[in-house]
Protein backbone atom coordinates (compact mmCIF):
# COMPACT_ATOMS: atom_id res chain seq x y z
CA UNK A 1 0.00 0.00 0.00
CA UNK A 2 1.37 3.37 -0.97
CA UNK A 3 -1.27 5.68 0.47
CA UNK A 4 -3.87 5.02 3.15
CA UNK A 5 -7.16 6.53 1.97
CA UNK A 6 -9.36 4.78 4.54
CA UNK A 7 -7.09 5.84 7.40
CA UNK A 8 -7.21 9.42 6.11
CA UNK A 9 -11.00 9.32 5.78
CA UNK A 10 -11.41 7.98 9.31
CA UNK A 11 -9.16 10.76 10.67
CA UNK A 12 -11.15 13.39 8.74
CA UNK A 13 -14.29 11.97 10.37
CA UNK A 14 -12.93 11.99 13.92
CA UNK A 15 -11.37 15.46 13.70
CA UNK A 16 -14.56 17.28 12.68
CA UNK A 17 -17.32 17.57 15.25
CA UNK A 18 -20.08 18.17 12.69
CA UNK A 19 -19.19 14.78 11.20
CA UNK A 20 -18.84 12.53 14.22
CA UNK A 21 -21.89 13.87 16.03
CA UNK A 22 -24.24 13.18 13.10
CA UNK A 23 -24.38 9.36 13.47
CA UNK A 24 -25.00 9.81 17.21
CA UNK A 25 -27.92 12.09 16.37
CA UNK A 26 -29.25 9.47 13.93
CA UNK A 27 -29.24 6.71 16.56
CA UNK A 28 -30.68 8.98 19.25
CA UNK A 29 -33.50 10.23 17.00
CA UNK A 30 -34.49 6.81 15.66
CA UNK A 31 -34.34 4.93 18.94
CA UNK A 32 -35.64 7.82 21.03
CA UNK A 33 -38.69 8.59 18.90
CA UNK A 34 -39.56 4.89 18.59
CA UNK A 35 -39.30 4.54 22.38
CA UNK A 36 -41.46 7.60 23.01
CA UNK A 37 -44.14 6.65 20.48
CA UNK A 38 -44.30 3.01 21.56
CA UNK A 39 -44.54 4.07 25.18
CA UNK A 40 -47.30 6.59 24.51
CA UNK A 41 -49.37 4.99 21.72
CA UNK A 42 -47.96 1.48 21.18
CA UNK A 43 -50.75 -0.34 22.91
CA UNK A 44 -53.62 1.77 21.60
CA UNK A 45 -52.85 2.91 18.04
CA UNK A 46 -53.65 0.07 15.64
CA UNK A 47 -51.67 1.66 12.81
CA UNK A 48 -48.59 0.92 14.88
CA UNK A 49 -49.56 -2.60 15.96
CA UNK A 50 -51.17 -4.03 12.83
CA UNK A 51 -47.71 -4.44 11.33
CA UNK A 52 -45.43 -4.45 14.41
CA UNK A 53 -42.56 -3.09 12.29
CA UNK A 54 -44.59 0.07 11.69
CA UNK A 55 -44.19 0.92 15.37
CA UNK A 56 -40.67 -0.43 15.71
CA UNK A 57 -39.35 1.65 12.81
CA UNK A 58 -41.40 4.76 13.56
CA UNK A 59 -38.32 6.68 14.74
CA UNK A 60 -36.40 5.73 11.59
CA UNK A 61 -38.50 8.21 9.59
CA UNK A 62 -36.78 10.98 11.53
CA UNK A 63 -33.41 9.41 12.26
CA UNK A 64 -32.81 8.67 8.59
CA UNK A 65 -32.57 12.40 7.86
CA UNK A 66 -29.38 12.44 9.95
CA UNK A 67 -28.14 9.44 7.98
CA UNK A 68 -28.82 11.33 4.74
CA UNK A 69 -26.96 14.35 6.13
CA UNK A 70 -23.97 12.22 7.14
CA UNK A 71 -23.77 10.74 3.64
CA UNK A 72 -23.85 14.22 2.13
CA UNK A 73 -21.40 15.74 4.65
CA UNK A 74 -18.78 12.99 4.28
CA UNK A 75 -17.89 14.24 0.81
CA UNK A 76 -19.92 17.47 0.61
CA UNK A 77 -17.77 19.26 3.21
CA UNK A 78 -14.76 18.64 0.95
CA UNK A 79 -16.46 20.47 -1.90
CA UNK A 80 -17.76 23.21 0.39
CA UNK A 81 -14.47 23.92 2.17
CA UNK A 82 -12.19 23.25 -0.79
CA UNK A 83 -10.26 20.47 0.95
CA UNK A 84 -10.91 18.15 -2.00
CA UNK A 85 -7.78 19.49 -3.73
CA UNK A 86 -5.71 18.64 -0.65
CA UNK A 87 -7.34 15.22 -0.39
CA UNK A 88 -6.54 14.41 -4.00
CA UNK A 89 -3.00 15.74 -3.60
CA UNK A 90 -2.60 13.25 -0.73
CA UNK A 91 -4.37 10.40 -2.55
CA UNK A 92 -4.06 11.21 -6.26
CA UNK A 93 -5.65 7.95 -7.42
CA UNK A 94 -9.26 9.13 -7.46
CA UNK A 95 -10.68 5.62 -7.51
CA UNK A 96 -8.74 4.81 -4.33
CA UNK A 97 -9.83 8.06 -2.71
CA UNK A 98 -13.47 7.39 -3.60
CA UNK A 99 -13.31 3.79 -2.39
CA UNK A 100 -12.01 5.08 0.94
CA UNK A 101 -15.01 7.41 1.20
CA UNK A 102 -17.53 4.71 0.25
CA UNK A 103 -15.97 2.17 2.60
CA UNK A 104 -16.03 4.55 5.56
CA UNK A 105 -19.60 5.54 4.66
CA UNK A 106 -20.72 1.90 4.50
CA UNK A 107 -18.98 1.03 7.79
CA UNK A 108 -20.47 4.04 9.59
CA UNK A 109 -23.88 3.25 8.10
CA UNK A 110 -23.66 -0.34 9.27
CA UNK A 111 -22.69 0.75 12.79
CA UNK A 112 -25.56 3.24 12.88
CA UNK A 113 -27.94 0.58 11.50
CA UNK A 114 -26.95 -1.98 14.14
CA UNK A 115 -27.25 0.50 17.01
CA UNK A 116 -30.47 2.00 15.70
CA UNK A 117 -32.24 -1.32 15.16
CA UNK A 118 -30.96 -2.66 18.50
CA UNK A 119 -32.28 0.46 20.22
CA UNK A 120 -35.63 0.37 18.46
CA UNK A 121 -35.95 -3.35 19.14
CA UNK A 122 -35.18 -2.93 22.83
CA UNK A 123 -37.63 -0.02 23.11
CA UNK A 124 -40.37 -2.02 21.38
CA UNK A 125 -39.73 -5.18 23.42
CA UNK A 126 -39.83 -3.19 26.66
CA UNK A 127 -43.10 -1.43 25.84
CA UNK A 128 -45.45 -3.37 23.57
CA UNK A 129 -43.41 -6.57 23.19
CA UNK A 130 -42.38 -8.27 19.93
CA UNK A 131 -42.84 -11.83 18.72
CA UNK A 132 -39.44 -12.71 17.29
CA UNK A 133 -40.75 -16.03 15.97
CA UNK A 134 -43.32 -14.41 13.66
CA UNK A 135 -42.41 -15.13 10.03
CA UNK A 136 -40.36 -12.39 8.41
CA UNK A 137 -39.35 -10.70 11.66
CA UNK A 138 -35.65 -11.41 11.34
CA UNK A 139 -35.70 -10.48 7.66
CA UNK A 140 -37.35 -7.16 8.53
CA UNK A 141 -34.80 -6.49 11.27
CA UNK A 142 -31.85 -7.33 9.01
CA UNK A 143 -33.30 -5.10 6.28
CA UNK A 144 -33.60 -2.29 8.84
CA UNK A 145 -29.91 -2.61 9.62
CA UNK A 146 -28.85 -2.74 5.96
CA UNK A 147 -31.12 0.17 5.02
CA UNK A 148 -28.71 2.53 6.83
CA UNK A 149 -25.43 1.82 4.97
CA UNK A 150 -27.33 1.70 1.67
CA UNK A 151 -29.01 5.06 2.27
CA UNK A 152 -25.77 6.62 3.49
CA UNK A 153 -23.70 5.42 0.52
CA UNK A 154 -26.50 6.44 -1.87
CA UNK A 155 -26.43 10.02 -0.56
CA UNK A 156 -22.62 10.13 -0.51
CA UNK A 157 -22.52 8.99 -4.13
CA UNK A 158 -25.23 11.42 -5.29
CA UNK A 159 -23.38 14.29 -3.60
CA UNK A 160 -20.28 13.28 -5.55
CA UNK A 161 -22.33 13.46 -8.74
CA UNK A 162 -23.67 16.92 -7.78
CA UNK A 163 -20.23 18.08 -6.52
CA UNK A 164 -21.99 20.56 -4.27
CA UNK A 165 -22.93 20.13 -0.62
CA UNK A 166 -25.61 22.80 -0.56
CA UNK A 167 -27.34 21.42 -3.63
CA UNK A 168 -27.21 17.91 -2.18
CA UNK A 169 -28.63 18.99 1.19
CA UNK A 170 -31.33 21.03 -0.51
CA UNK A 171 -32.30 18.25 -2.86
CA UNK A 172 -31.85 15.02 -0.94
CA UNK A 173 -32.92 15.72 2.62
CA UNK A 174 -36.44 17.00 1.81
CA UNK A 175 -36.81 14.33 -0.85
CA UNK A 176 -36.05 11.53 1.59
CA UNK A 177 -37.87 13.10 4.52
CA UNK A 178 -41.07 14.18 2.77
CA UNK A 179 -40.87 13.74 -0.97
CA UNK A 180 -41.03 10.05 -1.59
CA UNK A 181 -43.69 9.60 1.10
CA UNK A 182 -45.75 12.35 -0.50
CA UNK A 183 -45.24 10.87 -3.96
CA UNK A 184 -46.56 7.48 -2.88
CA UNK A 185 -49.70 9.19 -1.65
CA UNK A 186 -50.62 10.24 -5.19
CA UNK A 187 -52.41 7.24 -6.75
CA UNK A 188 -50.92 7.34 -10.25
CA UNK A 189 -47.43 8.36 -9.18
CA UNK A 190 -47.38 5.68 -6.53
CA UNK A 191 -47.02 3.06 -9.24
CA UNK A 192 -43.62 4.50 -10.12
CA UNK A 193 -42.60 6.07 -6.80
CA UNK A 194 -42.62 2.69 -5.09
CA UNK A 195 -39.49 1.85 -7.08
CA UNK A 196 -37.53 4.73 -5.56
CA UNK A 197 -34.61 3.54 -3.42
CA UNK A 198 -35.82 4.54 0.03
CA UNK A 199 -39.38 3.28 -0.66
CA UNK A 200 -38.04 -0.06 -1.87
CA UNK A 201 -35.66 -0.35 1.06
CA UNK A 202 -38.29 0.54 3.64
CA UNK A 203 -40.73 -1.99 2.16
CA UNK A 204 -38.17 -4.68 3.03
CA UNK A 205 -38.42 -3.62 6.67
CA UNK A 206 -42.16 -4.41 6.88
CA UNK A 207 -43.70 -7.76 7.84
CA UNK A 208 -46.92 -7.67 5.85
CA UNK A 209 -47.36 -7.56 2.09
CA UNK A 210 -48.85 -4.40 0.63
CA UNK A 211 -51.32 -5.28 -2.14
CA UNK A 212 -50.32 -2.44 -4.47
CA UNK A 213 -46.55 -2.99 -4.30
CA UNK A 214 -45.27 -4.83 -7.35
CA UNK A 215 -42.32 -6.57 -5.73
CA UNK A 216 -41.51 -8.69 -2.69
CA UNK A 217 -39.76 -7.64 0.51
CA UNK A 218 -36.42 -9.21 -0.45
CA UNK A 219 -36.60 -7.67 -3.90
CA UNK A 220 -37.18 -4.29 -2.26
CA UNK A 221 -33.81 -4.44 -0.56
CA UNK A 222 -32.26 -5.65 -3.79
CA UNK A 223 -33.78 -2.69 -5.65
CA UNK A 224 -32.29 -0.27 -3.16
CA UNK A 225 -28.92 -2.00 -3.49
CA UNK A 226 -29.15 -1.62 -7.25
CA UNK A 227 -29.91 2.12 -6.96
CA UNK A 228 -26.98 2.55 -4.62
CA UNK A 229 -24.62 0.68 -6.94
CA UNK A 230 -25.69 2.84 -9.91
CA UNK A 231 -25.23 6.02 -7.86
CA UNK A 232 -21.79 4.84 -6.68
CA UNK A 233 -20.72 4.22 -10.27
CA UNK A 234 -22.05 7.63 -11.35
CA UNK A 235 -20.12 9.27 -8.51
CA UNK A 236 -16.94 7.51 -9.57
CA UNK A 237 -17.47 8.73 -13.13
CA UNK A 238 -18.10 12.33 -12.05
CA UNK A 239 -15.02 12.36 -9.82
CA UNK A 240 -12.88 10.90 -12.56
CA UNK A 241 -14.12 13.21 -15.27
CA UNK A 242 -14.02 16.64 -13.65
CA UNK A 243 -11.06 18.76 -12.61
CA UNK A 244 -10.91 18.87 -8.85
Amino acid sequence: MSTYPLRAEWTKFTTLRSLWTTPLVAVALSAGITAAVQFAYGRTDTSLTEDPMEGLYFGLNFGQVAVVCLGILLIGQEYASGTLAGSLAAVPDRARFYRGKLLLGAALGLAVGLLTVAGQLAATAATVGLDLTAPGTWRALAAGVLYHPLLLVLCLALTTVLRNQTAALGLLSPLIFLGTTALTAIPGVREIAQFLPDRAGLYATRLHDAPDVHYGHGTGLLLMTLWTAIAAAAGQYALHRHDA
Binding site: T3, Y4, P5, R7, A8, E9, W10, T11, K12, T15, L16, G86, S87, A90, V91
Partner: peptide
Protein backbone atom coordinates in the same frame (compact mmCIF):
# COMPACT_ATOMS: atom_id res chain seq x y z
CA UNK B 1 -3.53 19.52 14.54
CA UNK B 2 -6.72 17.87 13.27
CA UNK B 3 -6.10 19.23 9.78
CA UNK B 4 -2.53 17.92 9.73
CA UNK B 5 -3.57 14.59 11.25
CA UNK B 6 -5.67 13.47 8.28
CA UNK B 7 -2.95 14.45 5.85
CA UNK B 8 -0.40 12.53 7.94
CA UNK B 9 -2.79 9.55 8.09
CA UNK B 10 -2.92 9.36 4.28
CA UNK B 11 0.82 8.61 4.25
CA UNK B 12 1.20 6.94 7.61
Amino acid sequence: TGHLRWIAASHH
